[in-house]
Design a binder for these strands. Structure first.
Lengths: 134, 134
DNA sequence: TCTAAGGTACGATAAAAAACGTACGTTTAG
DNA sequence: CTAAACGTACGTTTTTTATCGTACCTTAGA
């Protein structure tokens, strides 16, 4: 009886652009397309307003967003919880890239330029401890 | 003079399926399509052999894989280095999901079911230290 | 009142990713 | 020798993402 995986295996992770939108909504709360679009535009290159609009409409159809249509300027908000969603993405990433091993992730972090010296130092200590624990 | 980002910013990350193939090649070394396909099949649902074949051929065209055609059973191998490739993916993931903050990643790990009790313990300690360091 | 600015709806397109199926060459067990 | 098993080549199709453009409302202000 081969079954999928009984643990919390994570609803499909939103696509990249979708995450960008969610990110903004989580950070600023319910917003108009215009608002999201402006932030998006300044973060990434110029995008057409209608592209952002369409994206958000699609996301709404998918159930990723919900919107208040009482006013002309619809107010969109994220349906998914930030923590949970990111957690799912993280799990998937871990599985895909590091066979689910947090320790492997750590090791990778150790060689990553995104990691600051301080973080690096503590990471090393951490790995030592993990080795002993094992 | 807005410029991209002079630091190692990461060649485009391979797509999901491509990563799966790379994963197998890194782990088992140069292999035939058949071999990769079998592993792939057992990990994910049933896939048509030719799909895997096509994927690997395409990847070869893209320069992700190279192959030895001296024998009928072509032997494929990964061109990219595992560590580097994963490092790039990690950087991107960090940026997209945790604004590049390793600490945030840690915190997320803390609440992730993929994290074992031992790892959890050390993670907590680590975060304490990071707080002090700041 | 009429118009320009700013909204939404929605069909369309483009490109990337994921999967197939058919045609055809090679090898090997009988 | 020959058929079944196993391989590769490659054109195609299906989805999913990412982006647009055009048509058409709504509202505030000259």
């Amino acid at each position: 009886m081969k079954q999928k995986n009984q643990s919390t295996v994570a609803d499909p992770v939103p696509a990249k652009s979708e995450m960008d939108v969610l990110q903004i909504l989580w950070q600023h709360g319910p917003s108009t397309v215009r608002f999201v679009h402006d932030i998006l535009t300044e973060k990434k290159g110029n995008i057409q307003y209608t592209s952002t609009l369409k994206l958000m409409q699609t996301m709404t159809e998918k159930g990723l967003l919900m919107r208040d249509e009482t006013n002309m300027k619809h107010i969109y908000s994220a349906v998914l919880e930030e923590k949970k969603t990111k957690g799912n993405a993280l799990s998937k990433f871990l599985d895909n890239m590091y066979e689910g091993s947090v320790k492997s992730l750590m090791t990778a972090l150790l060689g990553n330029e995104k990691t600051s010296p301080e973080e690096l130092k503590v990471l090393e200590e951490m790995l030592h401890k993990l080795d002993k624990t094992k």
